[in-house]
Amino acid sequence: MPITLWLAFLGASLLLAIAPGPDNLFVLTQSAVHGARAGITVVLGLCTGLVLQTIAAALGLAAVVAAAPALFWAIKLLGCAYLLYLAFMAWKHAADGAEGRGAVALSSFALWRRGVIMNITNPKVLIFFLAFFPQFIPTGLTGTPLVIQMIIQGVTFIGATLVVFGGISWCAGTLADRLRSPRFQAALNRISAVIFLGLAVFTLMS
């Protein structure tokens, strides 16, 4: 991959990672509720999902999803249902913060799993890869060179996501830790529930 083309792709990936979107909001809320370290674990889960999405795009599975509306909608509905579940749990545990019990403790694996599920149940990521990656691929590439090119792009995109989302996680988690109190914790959980509900509606309608 020519260095000039790679730098252009890296710049575009960083801008896309910075632009407000569902994943940004998800990382922000999880970091605020559970802390900076927990937020970074969620980011690692999201990036793991991106690894799977990159492999799927390189193998042509993205094209299969794009060509199968029923499959696309099935994945979207799963993602919507998961966000509704997170919204319910966040609202349910808002009382814990109000009563001074703090946020419900989640293991690192549970947080990582949230990130993975959030990413892989978003079929728009696959479609995005299908539309975005080819714009930075030299014409005429086929077979193995094309797959390698897409893997390079995937690794670059994941790196950009890790840096930007990691920064968001650290800032949100550190600020929330300094302000943490029972009332603040309860408000964070309720705000998270509303955001998750909004993301579920956005996922279904977009």
Rank of each mutant, 00 (worst) to 15 (best):
L141T: 05
G97F: 02
G167A: 09
W170Q: 11
G21S: 11
F9E: 02
G154M: 07
S107R: 14
A95K: 04
R37D: 07
L179A: 14
A68P: 00
L61Y: 14
V164I: 14
C80W: 09
A131D: 05
S192Y: 06
T121N: 13
A66C: 08
F136W: 07
V194S: 06
A193K: 02
L25R: 10
L46G: 09
A58F: 08
G143P: 07
S31R: 07
T48R: 09
A160Q: 03
A62N: 12
M205H: 13
T174W: 12
G49L: 03
L61H: 07
A70M: 12
M205E: 10
A98L: 15
K92D: 00
L83I: 12
G198P: 09
L83R: 11
R190I: 06
G198C: 13
V33F: 00
G167N: 12
A87E: 03
A12C: 05
G167P: 09
G39S: 10
S169I: 12
A200I: 01
M118H: 14
F133V: 01
V51Q: 08
G143H: 12
H93W: 06
L146K: 13
V64E: 04
S181M: 04
N119T: 15
F133C: 04
F202H: 14
S169L: 09
D177I: 00
L83G: 07
E99V: 02
F184G: 02
I158T: 11
C80L: 15
L197H: 04
G49R: 10
V201N: 09
R183P: 00
P69K: 07
A98T: 08
A160L: 08
A17G: 09
V125I: 13
W6S: 01
A81R: 02
G167C: 08
C171A: 15
Q149L: 09
A17D: 00
I148S: 01
G166Y: 08
A32R: 11
I120C: 08
G60M: 11
G115P: 11
W112P: 10
R178N: 05
L61P: 07
R178A: 01
D177R: 15
A8G: 05
W73Y: 12
L86P: 03
Q185G: 03
A36C: 06
T144D: 02
L61M: 13
I40W: 11
F129Y: 14
T54R: 13
L162G: 04
V43K: 05
W112S: 06
V116P: 06
A160W: 06
L77K: 03
I120W: 03
A63E: 14
T174P: 01
G166A: 07
A32F: 01
A87N: 04
L141H: 06
L204M: 15
V201H: 09
T144N: 00
A90M: 11
H93V: 05
F72H: 11
L59D: 03
A186P: 00
L14A: 03
M205S: 13
A131Y: 03
A110E: 07
L7K: 10
G115T: 05
R113Y: 12
T121M: 11
V125K: 13
L199A: 10
G198F: 14
T139V: 14
T142G: 00
E99C: 02
A103M: 00
G173K: 10
T4C: 01
F132Q: 01
